[in-house]
Design a protein around this nucleic acid. Sequence first.
DNA 1: ATGGTAGAAACTCTA
Length: 266
Amino acid sequence: MPNTLFGAQPLFTIATWNVNSLKMRMPVLLDWLEKHKPDALALQETKIEDHEFPTLDLAIAGYQAVYAGQKSYNGVAILAKDMPDACDYGLPDFADEQKRVIAATVNGVRVIDLYVPNGQSVGSDKYEYKLNWLAALHRWLGEELQKHEKIVVLGDFNIAPEDADVDDPWRWEGRILFTDAEKAAFHRLLELGFVDAFRRFPHPPKTFSCWDYRMNAFHKNRVARIDHVLVSPALVPKLTAAMIDVAPRTHERPSDHTPVVISMEN
DNA sequence: ATGGTAGAAACTCTA
C-alpha cells in the first residue's frame, strides 16, 4: 500500500523508466526499487518476450507485474506493489504489432504506460507512423478521460515539448523528437486537460531524462527531457512532487534514460 | 557535421 508519513496524507508514488533491455537492467532496477519503493513503475523498451519476463525476481522484490513484450524491440510493463487490475493492451482502432502500450488500474488510478515511436528521421516512414500513432493516442485518451477520473499517462514520449527540454534549442531545430508536428501532438494531449507533472514544480535548468549513448563521441548529441508523466485534471491538485532521478546514469551499465518520479496524495 | 555507442540478434536494425 502507499507510503504513509506520520500525520500526513498517504502518498502514492509512481515512476516511469525506459530501461533499454530489462534483462540488462535487472540489477540496477532491483536496487532502484529497493531504494525508492514506488507504488507503481512503468517500464519501456523491456525487449523481452512475455514467457521470459522475470516475474519471480520481481515478486521477491515485492512487485506484481503486467507486461506486453516482444523480442529485440519495444515492450512495456507496469510493476506495482498491489496487483495491477483491468489490463488493456495497445491503442484501440490502431493495428500495431509493436508492443508500445499497456494500461492497468493500480490503487484506483488508471495507469497508461506508453512507448511512443521514436520516428527515426523527419520524413521517414517511421516518422509518419509516429504521427499517426500520436493521433490515435489522442483519440483514445479523450475517451479515457470520460471513463476515468484519476489517470496517469507516463512513459517515453520521444518528444521534447519545450525549448527548456533540450540542451540547445537552436541546434535541435527541426530535428526528430523536436519538430513542430511532434510538439503540437504533445500539446494536443495537454489541451485534453492532461498536465505535465514535472512542470508543476521547480527544477534546475537543463534537467533532462535521456542522453544519447553517442553524446561523448563527436559532439554532444541528443540530451533532452522526453520521458513524461501526465496527470488528469482531478489529480493535479493532489500532486506533491515530481523529480528526475539522475542517479542510475552513474551505474556501470546505465540505460540511456533515467527514471521520472511523481508523488501525490492518495 | 550523417559520425558515434549500446542492445539484441544475427552477420543488421533500432534508437
